[in-house]
Design a protein around this nucleic acid. Structure first.
Lengths: 189, 189
DNA sequence: GTCTATACACTGATAGAC
DNA sequence: GTCTATCAGTGTATAGAC
């Protein structure tokens, strides 16, 4: 395990505060207090508050993109691909429970990276929808609007970060299995 | 249709801005600009920014509470109750697409009404979970953790506001039917 | 690497004229 | 009911000492 740099520590603590109050409501003084230093000292490690937000959001968004690329590359069935996507969300969410909040709710406060983020997200959704449409065409899943199916599954997966930390005893494998059952069962033919 | 008061107009416009940027990032000057007046003039109609947030969140939260009370009072089966809850969310969300964003993401910025909101929410979730547990006990729905089932269904329903406005052609009846199929099918035995 | 001191734009909100 | 003028407090960020 590589030693955490001071910069990484700041970003980690910031993500936690952003989850609690949102990016706009967290001040550099709040962040400094949580780090037990003064606000001015933060700037020895980071360039701006905006840079912190970018680090958090873009790094996670790119993990999803990489994961989806891997899912698309496989020769699995539609249902198997959906299961892989569920596992991808459980894994990334459980390892980034604070950052996921910023990804979901503070992306609109991105400045220079806003369009980059939007493209990553829309590409991801398009890939997801394509998988569902193929599943409908091959008869694997039910023939209702792919938009509604994607919305239903994806909003559940995107909200995992809200729920995983509440249950400290939650077994991630069991959670994944339960989600597989509930979410897949809802769309399988 | 009753004529909208100036106060109601301010609250409506504020909710729209809160959805776009979040409570903390919206300034009274932003709100005034959107109303085509100056910030100081807002205070002739409202007491504070905080009061606006309270109006938006508490009024919607109480609609859910009233709806749940009605669902609980019926003699319907667990599945029928779930369908009523889905219909409740579709109705409230479609009529409060802006306010739902504040309810979901800005409740932590409530001050005097924070505990009131938290109690309404936790009561609602407990009632929801009770319905699911009864369904498991009666054999109507599958026997997996009620927490996971509730989480999955409720996060989808709570995110409806994000999705309804995107599809201007969406037929709410059809949406409700699709959600009934996907969400119920996922938990039915 | 952290501090104190500070710049200076912006925040919610009020007073009082019209 | 809206305006201008203004206040006290807080926001991000920088300069320079240690």
């Amino acid at each position: 395990m590589k030693q955490e740099t001071r910069q990484e520590e700041i970003i980690r603590v910031a993500a936690k505060l952003f989850k609690e109050k949102g990016y706009s409501a967290v001040t550099m003084r709040d962040l400094a207090t949580a780090m037990n230093i003064k606000a001015a000292s933060l700037y020895n490690h980071i360039n701006s508050k905006q840079d912190i937000l970018e680090s958090i959001i873009i790094s996670i968004a790119e993990k999803f993109t990489v994961g989806m690329t891997s899912v698309l590359a496989s020769n699995a069935t539609c249902i198997e691909k959906l299961k892989e996507i569920i596992a991808l969300h459980v894994e990334i969410s459980s390892q980034n429970i604070y950052g996921m909040a910023a990804l979901n709710h503070d992306w609109m406060h991105l400045e220079s990276q806003l369009n980059h983020y939007k493209k990553l997200r829309s590409d991801y959704e398009n890939d997801f929808k394509t998988i569902l449409i193929e599943g409908v065409n091959s008869g694997e899943i039910i023939d209702i609007k792919p938009d509604v199916m994607m919305f239903s599954i994806l909003t559940t997966l995107r909200s995992l970060y809200l729920w995983i930390p509440k249950k400290e005893d939650v077994n991630l494998k069991e959670l994944t299995n339960n989600l597989n059952e509930i979410l897949i069962k809802g769309v399988v033919k």
